[in-house]
Simulated assay, not measured.
Amino acid sequence: MRVFLLSLLVRFGCGAQLQSEMYGSLESPNFPDPYPTDTERNWTISVPDGFRITLFFSHFDLEPSYLCQYDFVKVKVDGEALALFCGKEETDTEAVPAQRVITSPRNSLSVQFVSDFSNEEQFSGFVAHYSAVDIDECSEHGDKDLLCDHFCHNFIGGYYCSCRYGYQLHTDNHTCRVDCSGAVFRERSGVLSSVNFPGPYPKSSDCWYRIELEAGFRVQMNFDPRFDVESHPDISCPYDHLKIQAGSREFGPFCGAQSPGIIWTDSNVVSIRFHSDDSGENLGWRLSYSATGSQCPVPEVPPNAVMVPIQTEYSFKDHVVFSCQQGFLLVQDGGTSDRLQLECQADGSWSGRPPHCDSKILTADKHPTEPPP
């Protein structure tokens, strides 16, 4: 039993040896003397993140066999074999590492040496050297957009991202976002859009816009037919979306490729919120807005009067001016004047009543000139 247990310890070793330096070497047991029979030895090489491992055999002398059934060296990553070697360097076998340099796809690598029950020719084994090599993530990554939104900068052991002017690096250190909140539009008409429209809008951003018009006006919005916001085929706008709040009414959320078209509101104050997540290359949206006001009835033009401008409809803040034809005086509230201006008010009424025009002769008779005392 003691001999059997001792044989197991020699065969399977005492666990893998951990190599954590940035460079080093491995040798078969007893090197440069012949390696023992019935032996297994394992090494695990680990270097910091941001590096890979290169492995090179400077000496290799193992028992040759078909498909390396007897003695062999196996190089593995995460349990999967990268290479299997056996034989002598002087022979013409494909199983010898020769001058081949093995590069691991990750920052860890394992090497396994196994010998069977015989070593009749006294093979000397192997010497291998490893070193950590820096990964240039910026040039090696297949899709740079998944690595950095805008700019990628490599350094030894890693990389970092930066953004174009006007953007800010998100807390994920990969995404470039913008500060697009707080813009207030007070003109009676205007245009607003997602950042960069019609180019891809920034990721991981929450944009807030506000339209504030004078009381009595209502906001009308007209969306550009080009509308492209990331969507989902089964769920309503789970990623990016546009929402509009106008008074007590909410419009949206909007996403996908269908433009919202024209939206009429009953409010003079509108809030627009646009959210984007950390992925996607959609082109965004644009809208133009205008002010529509309360409608006032078309004024009736009194006899002998002239009104400008003549329109089919009048809205809040529109003006009309009354004057009289030649030979008549404009009379309003007991007084006379040359002209009278009325304004359409927020409640849809005019600021005064239309005047009337009296003949100057009749007006003079009503107000005779008194002789001087």
Rank of each mutant, 00 (worst) to 15 (best):
F185G: 11
F126Q: 06
R100I: 02
D38I: 01
H153K: 11
F185M: 05
E90V: 04
F60D: 05
K144M: 14
H153S: 12
G24Q: 05
C148L: 08
G15V: 02
S189G: 08
S236H: 15
P202T: 01
A16F: 03
S118N: 07
P233V: 00
K144T: 13
Q332G: 00
L213G: 08
P29F: 02
E80A: 15
E27C: 11
Q258D: 15
A291I: 01
Q220H: 12
P372R: 09
Y160W: 06
E230M: 10
K144V: 14
S279Q: 02
E187T: 15
P233W: 00
G352R: 05
N30E: 12
E94T: 09
C148A: 11
Q295T: 15
L6I: 12
D71W: 12
T336A: 04
G216V: 10
V114I: 08
V111L: 15
F85S: 12
Y289Q: 09
F123S: 05
A95H: 10
K243S: 14
L362I: 08
C237M: 00
D78I: 05
R188Q: 14
L287Q: 02
P105M: 09
F274G: 08
E140I: 04
G280W: 03
C324V: 08
T91Q: 15
L147M: 15
G79D: 04
D71L: 09
F85C: 12
H153T: 14
G157P: 03
V127N: 03
E300V: 14
C344F: 02
Q122W: 03
I156D: 06
E94M: 07
P238R: 05
D71T: 09
L283T: 03
H319P: 00
